[in-house]
Design a protein around this nucleic acid. Structure first.
Lengths: 165, 165
DNA sequence: AGTGAAAGAATGTGTAA
DNA sequence: TTACACATTCTTTCACT
């Protein structure tokens, strides 16, 4: 499951187009890539089967949902043992405020990306859901001024621009 | 983009279902929610128009694309002035290794989520694209052991409908 | 908000390279 | 095995109620 899959120029072209707009139809993809629509269908089905494409996700605007303030919480869990971090991870993932959770190297064991209504809501979250837990030794809160998505994720290598045309 | 949007129980139900599977058909949504398919279409179109739904994103597996190592880079930019950070942000966003970029409060000005091939690739990225830049005062690298998506993003509070700005 | 029809897309089958 | 054309089925979308 962690092994690389062989992707040719057509696969990469399709992935690049789908990352621009995940709702493109197979007709549109086919026209851009220069193959038949049914071939595009086969290619995408294969990418999905081999685990390159994990799924389709809806991107929502947190501000429009009453969660206009986002923050990253750096969390130290002590002691850092399986029987404590399992329940910790489960609990954090289940919070409606949590957007993403990372287990990291370094002085902070976890980074939690949260979206809340306002500073008072953030204070409540930190006090009631983090520092009140026995295994949480320290929480450092960093507000997010602004965030950006970055370019499409594509394989590294000498020819990142091998487009099929 | 900061206009108030009022979401009723049907909107929230649709959003919850679409976050579970962004490829659900309007027929399936309609059956689950208990309205006509065309009503679902109208609701989703409105959520899209009002900016609640920002778009559909393809979720890819970085490991399958030869980027099996992910890390978070905490970056200090000195001096932290507009004429320096504008080009910095543009450059980082354009890197094929960048997945997301955050401008933060706290001692580290930026957090960059990157996906690379291996530790040597990460070392090259840090040295050639970060510490070699004059405005980058410090880079702290934290490897990602594991990461999790969290539950659906929904409005806070006991009231099923609200307005947000 | 719901109904039904027309347009369009997804998907399976057969077939040739 | 891989790509393609075609046919069938299902979905989306729009005019009307």
């Amino acid at each position: 499951m962690a092994d690389s899959v062989v992707l040719d120029a057509i696969d990469l072209h399709i992935l690049r187009l789908l990352q621009n707009d995940a709702r493109s139809t197979y007709r549109e993809l086919a026209a851009d890539v220069g193959v038949a629509p049914s071939t595009c269908l086969d290619r995408v089905a294969r990418l999905r089967r081999t685990g390159v494409i994990l799924g389709h996700q809806l991107r929502l605007n947190p501000a429009k949902l009453g969660r206009g303030l986002e923050a990253l919480l750096l969390v130290q869990v002590r002691p850092h043992r399986r029987e404590l971090i399992g329940p910790f991870v489960d609990r954090i993932r289940a919070l409606p405020e949590s957007r993403a959770l990372f287990h990291l190297t370094g002085p902070d064991d976890y980074l939690v990306h949260v979206a809340v209504a306002d500073p008072a809501d953030l204070q409540r979250l930190v006090l009631d859901e983090f520092t009140s837990r026995r295994e949480v030794a320290r929480v450092e809160t960093r507000l997010i001024f602004q965030q950006w998505e970055c370019g499409p994720l594509l394989p590294p290598g000498p020819s990142p621009s091998l487009s099929a045309d």
